[in-house]
Nucleic acid binder design. Structure first.
Lengths: 91, 91
DNA sequence: TCTGTAGTTAAACAACTATTGAACTAAAGG
DNA sequence: CCTTTAGTTCAATAGTTGTTTAACTACAGA
């Protein structure tokens, strides 16, 4: 009941095929990916990829590990468990 | 993997506080509601309620039973089970 | 048949979203 | 120091979404 604001952000973040693809790939491959690899999932630009990754990050659906100039993305499993339990396995 | 089109529709439908409230109320109360009752969940107009109900219906998140001039809405449980198992209980 | 009730539809509009290209920051390696 | 690599940010633009008001359909009951 409590935090619908984050819930809405989560649903907005997942209501786009590009971002759904990113989440699916991160989940299925079960490993970190950097921005360049994520860019390769769909045929799009750096800036567009950055835009979608930010939406996912702000919805707490992915987490970002920074290592020197590179950034590594992975699924933020806790958020899925709390707000969408069972969802990842439907992908 | 297959039908991301419906998946996107589902997420879009749930990424709005009004529609989230409608789903929550329908689920928690575990009974059918007509358009007027749904309108009462949030302070809004008939046409706005109709607009939101259509989005939920098109995402197959609610089903509509027609009885004379009235319409009765209820949760379409199968869709939630298939695409968002466990979600309803987080509400 | 007239009136009220229940809900849909259309037009107008502001706010938001996704995409693109160009300019930008920042670190690594030669 | 210069160049490459990695990613962010900004402005412009087209398309989408939510809200409002008003007009509409359809049925029920007096």
């Amino acid at each position: 009941m409590a935090n619908d604001e984050l819930r809405v952000k989560i649903f907005k973040a997942l209501s786009d095929e590009t971002r759904l693809d990113i989440i699916r790939t991160l989940y299925v491959n079960k490993k970190e990916m950097n921005c360049g690899e994520v860019m390769g999932i769909r045929d799009t630009s750096k800036s567009n990829t950055s835009y979608h990754l930010r939406a996912l990050k702000e919805a707490k659906l992915i987490k970002v590990r920074k290592e020197a100039q590179a950034k590594y993305m992975s699924i933020e499993i806790d958020t899925f468990q709390t707000y969408l339990p069972g969802f990842l396995d439907t992908l």
